[in-house]
C-alpha cells in the first residue's frame, strides 16, 4: 500500500516579490496507509499547499515528497502516474464537472488512465456506489443534479481511479449537517474497504474528532502538533492559541472540570463523554 512521506519540504509563493510568502516551512511528516489522517489549521496555514504537494500539482522548492520511498519528482514526465495513485479531491469539487452525463464525467479520470471501456464502466459503477449516487443519476447531466449530488459525483470522479491515497480538501464544506455526515461516513467506509491511505483537510473539529485516526495541526507553514484526536484535543490551550478550536464536547468537559466534575480532558466525542460519565468517573 501507499505511504507518503514529506522530507523537509519548503514552498514559497511569489519568490523575490514584495509579497513573498512561505507557505510551507521545512515540513516533515508521514501519512500511513490504513489510516484516516485529519489536517487542521486556520486559513493560510499551508494546508491546501501541502495537499497539492502530495500529488505533484506543486513542486517543493526544497525537500522531497516520497511515495513508498520513491521521490515523486524523480522523473517529472511520469508525474501523471503519481496523480493516478494519489487521488486529490479539491475544495468545492462540483465546479469541475463538465461532461454530458454524470457517468462520463466520473469516467474522465479512468479514461485518462487508459482503462478499457468495459473496465471504466465497472469502476464508475463502483465509485458511484461508494459516493452514494443512485444508478439512475448516472445518465443525467451533471448540471441537473442538486448541490449535494454534484459533490458526490465529483468525489466519485476521483474514487473511480481507485487511488491508493485519497486526499480530500474540505470535502464537506458548504453541505448541510446530514450531507456532511453522509459524505464523511462514505469516505470512512471507502477507507475501511480499500485499506487506502486517506487524508482529510477540514476546519471542523467535530468532523476530525469523529472520522480521523490521527490529527495533524498546521500553523504558519509548520507542523505544530500531531497525534490521536484524544492527544491533540486534550491540548486545547495550544489549539486556541493558534486560532483553532476544540470540539464542543471537549469544551464541555473542560467546563465540567472547572465546576468540580472531572471526566478527563481527552474527551472528544459525545459518546465517549457519556461513557465516562456513566462509568462514574465524574463523581463529585
Amino acid at each position: 500500500m501507499a505511504e507518503i512521506t514529506l522530507e523537509n519540504v519548503t514552498y514559497v509563493y511569489g519568490k523575490g516579490a514584495p509579497y513573498e510568502m512561505r507557505a510551507l516551512d521545512d515540513v516533515s511528516l508521514t501519512f500511513r496507509p490504513g489510516e484516516v489522517t485529519g489536517l487542521i489549521g486556520h486559513t493560510g496555514s499551508g494546508k491546501s499547499t501541502l495537499v497539492q504537494m502530495l500529488n505533484g500539482l506543486l513542486k517543493p522548492d526544497s525537500g522531497r515528497v516520497l511515495l513508498d520511498g520513491k521521490d515523486i519528482w524523480a522523473d517529472p514526465k511520469k508525474i501523471q502516474e503519481i496523480r493516478f495513485r494519489v487521488g486529490l479531491v479539491m475544495q468545492y469539487p462540483e465546479y469541475q464537472l463538465f461532461d454530458e452525463t454524470v457517468e462520463s464525467d466520473i469516467g474522465f479520470g479512468p479514461k485518462n488512465m487508459g482503462m478499457e471501456p468495459e473496465k471504466i464502466k465497472q469502476a464508475v459503477a463502483r465509485a458511484a456506489q461508494f459516493a452514494g449516487l443512485s444508478p439512475e443519476l448516472l445518465s443525467k447531466s451533471p448540471f441537473d443534479l442538486s448541490g449535494g449530488q454534484k459533490r458526490r459525483a465529483a468525489l466519485a470522479g476521483v474514487m473511480a481511479m481507485e487511488p491508493d491515497v485519497l486526499v480530500l480538501d474540505e470535502p464537506a464544506a458548504g453541505l448541510d449537517p446530514g450531507g456532511r455526515r453522509e459524505i464523511l461516513s462514505r469516505i470512512r467506509e471507502y477507507q475501511q474497504e480499500s485499506g487506502a491511505n486517506v487524508i482529510i483537510v477540514s476546519h471542523s473539529m467535530e468532523d476530525m474528532a469523529l472520522y480521523c485516526d490521527r490529527v495533524l495541526v498546521m500553523e504558519n507553514g509548520k507542523l505544530v502538533m500531531s497525534g490521536t484526536p484524544a492527544e491533540v484535543f486534550s491540548r486545547a490551550e495550544e489549539l486556541i492559541a493558534v486560532g483553532l478550536d476544540v470540539p464542543q464536547i471537549t469544551r464541555v468537559a473542560r467546563a465540567l472540570r472547572e465546576v468540580g466534575v472531572d471526566i478527563g480532558l481527552d474527551i472528544y466525542t459525545v459518546k465517549f463523554a457519556a461513557q465516562r460519565l456513566l462509568s462514574g468517573k465524574g463523581k463529585v
Binding site: R83, F84, Y95, Q96, G109, N112, M161
Partner: peptide, 16 residues
Amino acid sequence: EETEKIMNAQKARGAD
C-alpha cells in the same frame, strides 16, 4: 484564479 483551480482539479484526474 478560477482557471487555475479548475486546471488543477482536472490535472488531478489525469488531464494532460
